[in-house]
Simulated assay, not measured.
Amino acid sequence: MSLLIIGPRLHKNGQTGGVVVLMENTLASLQSRGLTIDVIDSNKRNYYFRWLGYISILFACTRKIPKADKVMLHGTAFDYLFIAPFVVFIGRLLKKKVGLAKFAGNYDLVYQRYSWLTKKVADWTLRHASILFWETQYLVEFFKPINSCSYWLPNMRKTNTKPLATREFQKRFVFLGHVNREKGVLDIKSVADELGSDYSFDLYGRAEDDDLVARLKNNSISYKGEIAAERVVEVIDDYDVLLFPSRREGEGYPGVVIEAFSRGVPTIAYELRGLKEMIRDNSNGLLVPVADVSALKAAIESLDRSRYQSLSKKAYESF
């Protein structure tokens, strides 16, 4: 069987994101099983001009879909309007099986905001795809009335090879992700300002706002810069708790939370829909109301050795 996968590859300068990491992991997993795979890179940043990227992608589809037995598109919401309809149409014309995989957790909200005409295009595309994969369970239920072949395909990581030792709580907190306001880094700063020097907070990730980075500095918080995706688990293992106070409605199942669970590191997060499917409050982590900095601080202060070790054990079992 030959499989054509359309999805975003790693950026040429090494910049990455959750969907890109998942795409690369998917390719590595399929290739390890000896499947014949062809790939079309849909990361428009890897093309000289964005509009040229779309033309190149569509042209590659016309050449490669006829040669494939099955086609899978890993797309953004934008791709679902400008690439997916074309891929599904060509697939139906050539009697090819076409699957669509949507990662992130807010496509139901995006869909509901579409204009009448845009929604008609999306409906036709989703209905005529052979199979749909969704990252969260609530998206599966939302889109089943459009296409009953809707299935849950969560974000995931490789099985552990390193055994988990009993972790001691030393009040070391870490954030890994895009360092911006939407990800809640200023909320972490506010908490760090109020807590004593017994607590430490380290932030890792790409930051494009130097002024924001400057605002993050104090005696107990430190910005450590961006790290390679393959080092994330290694870095997390040096800390006690992952902080994920994201306010972004599009969060599905963040890979960094899965990677934290893989080392028995519980997560304190805002209770977004996708995160509530991953994190069981007071079991494998703590959930607090979105943008409630006081509740975030209280959750951090509520941890002691006994409670922490219980959360750590459950986080590891969740992975």
Rank of each mutant, 00 (worst) to 15 (best):
residue 249 E to H: 04
residue 223 Y to F: 14
residue 243 L to D: 09
residue 276 K to N: 13
residue 230 E to A: 10
residue 255 G to Y: 06
residue 246 S to K: 06
residue 236 I to D: 06
residue 305 R to H: 13
residue 266 P to A: 03
residue 306 S to Y: 07
residue 224 K to Y: 08
residue 239 Y to E: 13
residue 292 D to I: 11
residue 230 E to V: 04
residue 254 P to Q: 02
residue 253 Y to I: 15
residue 249 E to P: 07
residue 246 S to C: 05
residue 299 A to F: 13
residue 263 R to W: 05
residue 297 K to C: 09
residue 246 S to R: 02
residue 253 Y to P: 02
residue 247 R to P: 02
residue 238 D to N: 13
residue 278 M to I: 14
residue 285 G to T: 08
residue 247 R to E: 15
residue 236 I to Q: 07
residue 294 S to Q: 15
residue 295 A to G: 01
residue 253 Y to F: 14
residue 222 S to M: 12
residue 261 F to M: 04
residue 274 G to K: 08
residue 304 D to M: 04
residue 268 I to C: 02
residue 284 N to Q: 04
residue 268 I to W: 13
residue 267 T to Q: 08
residue 259 E to H: 07
residue 280 R to M: 09
residue 253 Y to T: 15
residue 254 P to W: 03
residue 286 L to N: 03
residue 251 E to K: 04
residue 303 L to N: 06
residue 251 E to P: 13
residue 283 S to R: 11
residue 275 L to M: 11
residue 294 S to F: 12
residue 234 E to L: 03
residue 241 V to L: 09
residue 245 P to C: 14
residue 261 F to W: 10
residue 241 V to G: 04
residue 299 A to S: 11
residue 226 E to Q: 08
residue 224 K to I: 07
residue 283 S to K: 12
residue 286 L to G: 00
residue 279 I to L: 00
residue 289 P to M: 03
residue 262 S to L: 10
residue 301 E to M: 14
residue 241 V to I: 15
residue 227 I to V: 15
residue 235 V to C: 09
residue 242 L to R: 11
residue 239 Y to N: 09
residue 254 P to L: 07
residue 256 V to R: 01
residue 229 A to C: 10
residue 291 A to C: 12
residue 226 E to K: 13
residue 267 T to A: 12
residue 261 F to C: 04
residue 243 L to W: 10
residue 226 E to A: 14
residue 224 K to A: 00
residue 275 L to F: 01
residue 282 N to V: 09
residue 228 A to D: 07
residue 244 F to A: 03
residue 251 E to C: 05
residue 282 N to L: 12
residue 263 R to T: 11
residue 263 R to M: 12
residue 233 V to H: 14
residue 287 L to R: 03
residue 222 S to I: 12
residue 240 D to T: 05
residue 279 I to R: 01
residue 246 S to P: 09
residue 297 K to M: 14
residue 227 I to W: 01
residue 254 P to T: 07
residue 279 I to E: 00
residue 233 V to F: 09
residue 293 V to D: 11
residue 286 L to M: 11
residue 245 P to D: 04
residue 291 A to T: 14
residue 268 I to G: 00
residue 238 D to R: 11
residue 229 A to S: 14
residue 299 A to N: 14
residue 296 L to K: 03
residue 243 L to K: 04
residue 237 D to M: 12
residue 225 G to R: 06
residue 258 I to G: 00
residue 292 D to L: 10
residue 253 Y to H: 15
residue 281 D to Q: 03
residue 291 A to Q: 15
residue 260 A to S: 15
residue 257 V to E: 05
residue 240 D to K: 11
residue 305 R to E: 12
residue 299 A to Q: 11
residue 299 A to I: 14
residue 300 I to H: 04
residue 262 S to C: 02
residue 300 I to Q: 05
residue 289 P to D: 04
residue 247 R to A: 11
residue 247 R to D: 14
residue 304 D to G: 00
residue 266 P to V: 15
residue 298 A to D: 13
residue 251 E to M: 07
residue 295 A to N: 02
residue 256 V to S: 03
residue 232 V to G: 08
residue 240 D to V: 12
residue 249 E to M: 06
residue 288 V to L: 05
residue 223 Y to C: 05
residue 296 L to T: 00
residue 261 F to S: 03
residue 258 I to W: 02
residue 271 E to A: 15
